[in-house]
Design a protein around this nucleic acid. Structure first.
Lengths: 190, 190
DNA sequence: GATTTCTTTTGACAATTATCAAAAAAATTA
DNA sequence: TAATTTTTTTGATAATTGTCAAAAGAAATC
């Protein structure tokens, strides 16, 4: 049942049976239904999850009342409202289930206990933090790299999964443009 | 001489005398002069540094030949071409000294040795990776948050240091706009 | 302190992107 | 499958931002 978790962890680091077990011990299996928010804006986030099935989007509402999507995370992956989880400040994003999902939840306290007891689990934490930093760096790079059309083409190449499974309106704001502009760009490219 | 390093590390985690010493042992003191590139695009980056004095900008050249600045890092801070250092892929950014600088350099190999031997130093690595991820998240948030004018105002509030010390042309591309547009916006705000 | 180099500002105009409203298409639910 | 809801597309127009060239200002160098 937790095979995909093992596989995912293994892609970062080889853990022993007992290390895997203590990780499993802090997890609670849970379902999150489409459109439900796992994390709410302005609340402090002290929980994180492993996505076993489904995907999330991170979004906030700007001054004009528009929803701005800042990120997507697909299974398998660990996620949380990163800045809030780390610093203890209120989250500035909502994290919303895009489909009916299956996740394994755990608390910050439990995780930090494991960090203290198992250096290799802390190493896993470092590797995941690094992966998240790299992901943000790539998104940043995408946004800074010229016209909206170029950004979309780049996304097409690099993140085919996004373009194929995520509704266009959310991809638009991920790219920093409106859905109408993205729709027109797609027409122009065809 | 390395007081600012100690202080900086202490802001993340309390290390013992001997842990501090082994970190110092892998450092090489160095000067980097204004406009010099510490890291070159397309080269694999296996070194990182602690900035003791000065600041860097991260930039790349886009298809139209324009320099795009994606980040700034001021002393005191650890920096490297993050994605390249972690993954071993060629760097997609240049890292350029903005003033005459004083830095302490170290290699990836030496650092990873320390990670293996000193769990608390690996924890420091995790904490720094997290800080970098948070920094990128904030920059992303800035870029996605509506009009250029709003972005600039937000930067004014949040990162006064940037606005006061960095030449406008670099701030412009950090905000995803041209220097002319930023210049006009500043005039409008006055 | 004069000269050179680098940075910022300004103007005129063009291109890109946003906005609002409505229609069409697709997906979901009854 | 019909009805409802959600998502995408289209049109007309406005607002924002970019481009290119030149001037003004500031900083660095001799």
């Amino acid at each position: 049942m937790r095979e995909s978790l093992h596989k995912y962890i293994n892609s970062f680091i080889q853990l022993s049976e007992s290390e895997i077990r203590v990780i499993e011990d802090i997890l609670t299996s849970r379902k999150i239904y489409k459109k439900e928010n796992f994390i709410e804006i302005n609340k402090v986030c002290t929980k994180a999850i492993f996505i076993n099935k489904g995907y999330f989007r991170f979004y906030h509402v700007d001054v004009n009342g528009n929803e701005i999507t800042s990120d997507f995370y697909f299974a398998p992956s660990f996620i949380t409202s990163y800045t809030s989880f780390i610093t203890g400040a209120p989250s500035f994003v909502n994290v919303q289930a895009m489909v009916d999902m299956e996740v394994f939840e755990f608390t910050k306290n439990d995780l930090y206990d494991l960090y203290g007891k198992y250096p290799k689990i802390e190493r896993l934490g470092r590797l995941i933090a690094e992966a998240i930093a790299i992901n943000s760096e790539e998104h940043l790079f995408l946004l800074l790299n010229q016209s909206a059309e170029m950004r979309y083409k780049r996304l097409l190449e690099k993140n085919t999964k996004y373009v194929n499974t995520i509704p266009l309106q959310y991809i638009a704001s991920y790219l920093g443009i409106t859905k109408e502009t993205l729709s027109r760009m797609r027409k122009a490219i065809r």
